[in-house]
Design a protein around this nucleic acid. Structure first.
Lengths: 230, 230
DNA sequence: CGCGAGCTTGACGTTGTTCAACTAGAGTGG
DNA sequence: CCACTCTAGTTGAACAACGTCAAGCTCGCG
């Protein structure tokens, strides 16, 4: 499970650049007081859907998946890479986690107490606006994802997923896919077998190269075409 | 199109109870300065996806639908009833509307300038927290909707829709459905014909009563069962 | 060497869409 | 007042998309 590491000081941490730029040293200290650095092994759960959300996480290394535990399947909402924050939307409603988060690979992060975070947010307007921006973007991304899932056919959805990894996560045309086929299916809203079949089709048509989990986009143009036409 | 009405004073408006309770008279005045009361006829567009969002709307009477214009179909995200606010999530990112909103029936509302709203939000912490709460709840609702759309079969999704109207919108077991079958299909992520067929099945099984657009839930228990089992 | 988890493939059945035809009711103009 | 038209609703049949099931495969690991 999560292991507490010796805390360094927030003021020197490179992570503060992402959200906490606007804070004074005093405000950083407040956050520093109730904060844990933790490590997670691949597969370990960071937040569990339904549990109370008393901490938010800043992912400092590794990769994590955010997913909803549905009826029989999971729905993967997004992948988080460092340095990025995972903040439960229940923070200002029922104080619960509405999704689960787990580490895809060995990861490290920093747990920040919600209470301290809220306290600072009440003092610091810029942090509050930064936070609203994040919430808003999450909502907008979610819209896009939902439209894709409900209105595109499987090839379009797999194209969405591949381009998401290529553009947003790895920023490269070739990458090591961290998701299993099962998880790729959970991200694309289909069965594992279907995901595999579409990947194979893409491979047969020379659109992508797949060797185990290392993937490369060979024909970006066609993949984008498939993404658009559904 | 939208017609400007003579403005009454915000301080006496019953709508302020919903979001603006915490404001001082001076803050209310600030909002009052750049504010329009408007009426919309059924079918008229209130916000258009992609356009800049310079106003937010407080719906004071009528009903509106919030929807994304997708590839070939629309996806209805939610129905808004009075008194409720429609705030573009792009407010703190790209200042654009990421969904369209249109009146389902003749409606009235109050357009509030985003600039004034933001200005007051910077002064008034409670309003900011209220706003975050709204954004969060929207996100959470959207999660549920997405899971339903991607993991349930058609009967479950129609059950979702019927219960949404019964519980959230009309708060009654019988109601006049404002959505056309086409729109009901857009809300449930299926084709118009499929929506009609499921409604008919429910009717044949005695779960609901349908006469034109007036609907009644006869067997709530079975409907909830269908909702759960997908 | 064998075990197990993830991966792959094919055959098959189900779910849901598309298409085309038809109906009912609400205007509209002669 | 009666065609005419237009839109929403409805139905059935053919078809495509997708999931399920069962079997076999691969590869890392004990």
């Amino acid at each position: 499970m999560a292991k507490k590491l010796e805390s360094q000081n927030c003021e020197e941490c490179h992570c503060k650049k992402v959200v906490f730029t606007a804070l004074t040293d005093a405000e950083l200290d407040l956050i520093h007081l109730d904060r844990f650095q933790v490590t997670y092994n691949a597969g370990e759960i960071i937040f569990k859907q339904g549990s109370p959300s008393t901490y938010l996480l800043c992912l400092t290394s590794g990769l994590a998946k955010v997913y909803i535990e549905g009826l029989s399947k999971n729905l993967i909402l997004s992948i988080i890479k460092p340095v990025e924050y995972i903040i439960a939307p229940g923070l200002y409603s029922d104080n619960r986690h509405h999704f689960s988060v787990s580490a895809l690979v060995d990861s490290t992060g920093c747990l920040i107490a919600v209470n301290s975070f809220k306290k600072v947010m009440r003092q610091n307007l810029e942090l509050a606006e930064e936070f609203m921006q994040r919430l808003s973007n999450q909502l907008i991304d979610n819209f896009d994802h939902t439209v894709g899932l409900t209105q595109k056919q499987m090839p379009g959805r797999i194209a969405d997923a591949l381009l998401y990894f290529s553009e947003k996560i790895y920023e490269s045309n070739s990458f090591e896919m961290v998701l299993t086929r099962q998880e790729l299916a959970d991200f694309s809203g289909m069965s594992t077998e279907s995901a595999i079949r579409i990947l194979k089709d893409f491979k047969d048509e020379g659109i992508i190269e797949v060797r185990k989990n290392s993937m490369a986009i060979l024909n970006l143009e066609r993949l984008k075409k498939i993404q658009e036409t559904g």
